[in-house]
Design a protein around this nucleic acid. Structure first.
Lengths: 95, 95, 95, 95
DNA sequence: CGGCGCTACGTCCGTC
DNA sequence: GACGGACGTAGCGCCG
């Protein structure tokens, strides 16, 4: 390892042994990703369930999504406002 | 009827009390969604970490993503094949 | 024309004549796109110029971009708020 | 010093007057940017229209995008070739 | 050359 | 059942 560029192929010693190791390492990464991906899908399924349940009680999913989005935007904007404030402050600090 | 269409508004009794209850219920749904969303974000962050780590060892994230995608498609195809197979089998069982 | 699926290939009569026509039509679309793309690039260049000019007067482009983004978000959010209000109103109207 | 770093704040004389001027100047830049951004959005909308029209006649937008991209690369390459050629020519002229 | 922001693509949902 | 629209995610290009 510690090589970089080569992805998969060589890293150091014998092509065969090394290739095997690299492949195993790669496989490990891939599997970790896939495991996480599964978890993510599970969560997304839960979200769908919640929307479905809400719909079952007469709430409109479209509206709910919009509310979630707006609240998120509020949060994001808040953060950006803070970020910009910080930028201003650091800019002034350097004057 | 349950209520359906009205989202927010009525469910049954007095508009005021009900509005409050409906709002609380809605709030509850929204918060569940937002909680799940957070979890999802956390997982995505983990995935980014994995990609970063892999990159640090010389693997190309873009290629890894392609691999994941292809494997996923394989899985889907496999499932479809199995579904078809099952269909055939049940058809034969019923023949 | 009026066909769909086939992209380029057949549309109706003789492959040659038709192919020629389709190719010409495609070429026309492509060129329109490329013309628009050029215009877009020109505008983006103008924007860069403005940022550069501002920078020349001591304004920080990064901050400016953030301001522009926030203002845009404000606009979008405003619109979404209105959209949601409308949704609520129509939902209530149907109750 | 000219001003530089400070963005917003000082440029020269009294903080108040100057702040106002700087703010106005900044506002002007921001508005120019926003105006250009609008134009850009308009052009992008036009492009979407063209793609939609093409799609309506059976052409695949994704493929068209690829074509545009490839042609653009060709153009860029061509320009680079010419740049190199020019370089050679000027080198010879100066030799 | 690494991070960030914007654009473009694929997916999912609602519609007709 | 297909179409179009909306959303979220992935790729790309610019800036630092």
């Amino acid at each position: 390892m510690a090589d970089g560029a080569a992805a998969i192929a060589d890293t150091s010693s014998s092509a065969v042994a090394t290739g095997g190791v690299a492949a195993d390492r790669l496989r490990s990464f891939i599997e970790r990703i896939e495991r996480l991906e599964e978890d993510k899908q599970a969560i997304m399924a839960d979200m769908k369930e919640v929307y479905a349940e809400a719909k079952g009680e007469g709430y409109d999913a479209k509206i709910m999504r919009q509310i979630v989005r707006i609240r998120k935007m509020d949060r994001v904007e808040r953060q950006e406002q803070e970020a910009i404030l910080e930028l201003y402050l650091s800019a002034l600090g350097e004057a």
